[in-house]
Deep mutational scan, measured.
Amino acid sequence: DYYQTLGLARGASDEEIKRAYRRQALRYHPDKNKEPGAEEKFKEIAEAYDVLSDPRKREIFD
């Protein structure tokens, strides 16, 4: 679930989605986080943001 990936509730505003993405992206960015799995988590976060930030894709997902 993309909302869960970003730590959001369904119905989150565009601003909340953007804030959550930035927070998670900084936390799991491969240059900042060298833990195994961080790069994969970063890709999941980017995919979630891509879907939720686009109104058309978000409507299909919801």
Rank of each mutant, 00 (worst) to 15 (best):
E44C: 07
Y49K: 05
E16M: 07
K34Q: 07
G7Q: 12
P55D: 05
K34T: 07
A38N: 09
K57R: 13
P55I: 06
G37E: 08
E15L: 07
I45W: 00
N33P: 11
K18M: 12
L8N: 01
E44G: 12
A25R: 14
K57A: 09
T5S: 09
Q24M: 12
L52F: 02
A12W: 00
T5W: 05
E35I: 13
D54N: 12
D1T: 07
E40W: 12
K57S: 07
A46N: 15
K57C: 01
Y3I: 00
I17V: 10
I45V: 06
Y2S: 06
A46S: 13
A38V: 13
P55L: 09
A12G: 02
Y21C: 03
K41H: 08
Q4D: 01
K18E: 08
Y2W: 05
Y2Q: 05
D62T: 07
D54E: 06
G7M: 08
A20I: 00
Q24G: 06
K57P: 04
E35A: 05
L26C: 10
I45Q: 03
A25H: 03
Y2M: 08
G37A: 10
Y28A: 08
E15C: 08
E47Q: 08
Q24V: 11
A38H: 06
L52S: 02
K34H: 14
K18D: 06
P36G: 05
G11Q: 06
E47T: 11
K57L: 03
G7Y: 02
K43R: 00
R56N: 12
N33F: 03
R23V: 14
Y28P: 02
Q24D: 14
L6I: 02
Q4I: 09
P30M: 14
P55S: 10
L8R: 00
E39A: 13
E44W: 03
E59F: 03
P55N: 05
F42G: 06
E44M: 08
I17Q: 01
Y49I: 06
P30E: 11
A38M: 07
P30A: 12
F61L: 04
E59N: 02
E44H: 13
R10H: 08
A9R: 09
A12N: 01
E40M: 15
S13N: 12
D1H: 07
G37D: 05
A12Q: 02
G7T: 02
D62V: 06
V51G: 05
N33L: 14
G37M: 10
D1E: 08
E35H: 14
D1N: 11
E16W: 00
P36D: 05
